[in-house]
Write a protein that binds this DNA or RNA. Structure first.
Lengths: 348, 348
DNA sequence: CTGAAAGCGCTAACAC
DNA sequence: GTGTTAGCGCTTTCAG
């Protein structure tokens, strides 16, 4: 079985291969009869277009590179799922790369994308990245670039993010409205803007509701389930008083939950807990964990749509890059809702 | 900034472009001096190889297509992560496609892969697939194909799977050794071999330990958290007696757990529960859920390694296809371990 | 060690 | 409506 090309089809029908090419691409200037004949013999010979050749000639690959820290993280796999779905429905394919949060792999990934002449790059940068040279390179080569979630402000690139400030605000506001007043916030000591934004939202919500901001109640560290636990242990040792905890992400919140339970503290009667990210386990633990949903799949779809939109208006470029900011969603569950037990046990 | 090719480098150095190509590819018959000069000007001109052109000429793309039902499912994203990691370290890139469990998208994905002239395809087939024509097409075109997890026996293709029979066996055996005798098994009514294998393991374990197999204790349905709950409700209505539950996967097991707790049944004192898949939530719920780990990332890495191995021995093909079967791991947690409370609260 | 030359399979501008 | 022609940028014989 040798490879069959448009030339083989042409010979078979005694027409030129360019007519075949046009017929296959549904060119308007080809008669219906020829198109039919071409399609039939293509089918019969089991012809399959060679996208490589087509790409080389046309300069378009219909492939877009997606680089994320790790596809194992629920957040990223969801977004990638959304991107893939929409891009795919529009004739694009996804070249996937994981940076594993290292700048080295990130650079290598971008390098490969560039060499593969992808029609665009969608990225969420690694936490390690402070040198943006490879991103500058992308821009210089006029390859469309879009960031999601972890965007780089100074690069002036279109992006889709979620409003972390608002997320921090509504999480805190919810706790306040439930009557909690001494709200502990667990944040990160790393220079990551999304966490700083959540913290800012927390503070502003307190200010807005005339609740004093107590520096003692803001604890920073490396987020993890373990860290969540240790925060509660130390708070108890230091006799720190609080009636609610807003953790920067769900695993940390989970640690808080577990440690509080271990101490026999009632949730949410004595202390309320809310996390961030809407991890799958939140609705399965007991009490169910309140959280902030980041609309991951929607984010992926929005990224893809933004890309397609930019493609269309490529000519009129150089306007200010579009930055889409999605609304975070408050998910109230038992861990922060005093009325939960009596009201509902179903969910979304 | 126009695109720079090897011709530009050649002109710059007054040599032919074929010498440049060889230098760039580290051809042995090129002097160190020329290589150095070429590399320097390549760098200076900001040259970047065009993989498309290279692929067209050489017939190799260094891209492999990976098709999975959905990247949102932890199992698949983990395996893909493993595949990507190893393939990447070996100079391959991953073209990703989701079938969404439909045969239509699966076919379209494979079609695209073939058109893109991928160097190989790694697949886990959709549950809907009963017509294997597109897979036959892959084989006919001599594109290397490897299955993982959901393999198709009759296709006689290399694969990496996990020993589901053994998984079912050790899960059941564990319960038996803990002293449970009336073990309910929740299985699927779909024709999916992995679930049938788990069931077979369950039965054989009972037989092996001289425990009667009671058909009443084998319940089939569409797996989900809800289904797990309903099984327990119906069992109670029918006054079915059992002291342990082995569910075909973790979400169903979780439903079982929740419903048992709602009925005030003590776990694991009165009824033990074990699931399958080692979903992330298992160690976070209370009581923690015992389960069977499927070594997902390892599976991905093994798939990639198998692919690389097949590439190397391509000449000596046509032997029986290699089928790697990974061992499932028993993860004992509180939901099935009567000694748990006193022994440990840490995990893996 | 380097050059010359052919072509991978297709697209697209230009003819007629 | 269809044919002619010229490449896209590279790899890879075959020479020398």
């Amino acid at each position: 079985m040798k490879k069959v090309t448009i030339l083989d089809i042409a010979k078979e029908l005694n027409i030129t291969f360019s007519t075949v090419a046009r017929a296959l691409n549904d060119h308007p200037a080809i008669s219906a009869a020829t198109k039919k004949a071409v399609r039939e013999t293509a089918e019969r010979l089991n012809y399959r277009q060679n996208k490589i050749a087509s790409s080389l000639r046309s300069g378009r690959t219909n492939v877009i590179g997606v680089i994320v820290p790790s596809i194992r993280v629920t957040f990223f796999s969801s977004v990638v799922a959304g991107i893939e779905q929409v891009m795919n429905a529009n004739g694009y394919n996804i070249l996937l790369y994981q940076s594993n949060e290292t700048i080295g792999q990130e650079k290598r990934g971008i390098e490969t994308f560039l060499q593969s002449r992808v029609d665009g790059i969608i990225a969420s940068i690694s936490t390690e990245t402070t040198d943006y040279s490879s991103f500058h390179e992308i821009i210089k080569r006029k390859t469309p670039l879009i960031f999601f979630d972890r965007a780089v402000e100074q690069l002036n690139v279109p992006s889709v993010t979620i409003d972390d400030y608002k997320g921090g605000f509504i999480a805190t506001e919810h706790l306040i409205r439930q009557g909690y007043k001494r709200i502990l916030h667990i944040s990160s000591d790393r220079e990551i803007s999304i966490f700083k934004e959540r913290l800012r939202g927390y503070i502003d919500a307190l200010v807005h509701y005339n609740i004093p901001v107590d520096e003692e109640l803001i604890i920073k560290g490396d987020f993890s389930l373990e860290f969540g636990k240790s925060v509660i242990r130390e708070a108890r040792e230091n006799n720190l008083k609080f009636d609610a905890v807003f953790a920067l992400e769900d695993f940390t919140a989970m640690g808080v939950l577990q440690q509080l339970q271990q101490f026999g503290i009632k949730i949410p009667e004595e202390v309320a807990v809310i996390g961030f990210a809407n991890e799958a386990f939140g609705s399965l633990v007991s009490p169910q964990l309140s959280t902030i949903d980041q609309q991951t799949v929607l984010m992926g779809k929005e990224v893809a749509k933004l890309f397609l939109k930019l493609k269309k208006t490529e000519k009129t470029e150089e306007a200010a890059p579009e930055k889409i900011v999605l609304d975070p969603l408050l998910i109230v569950r038992a861990s922060s809702d005093r009325s939960w037990q009596t009201v509902s046990s179903s969910e979304q």
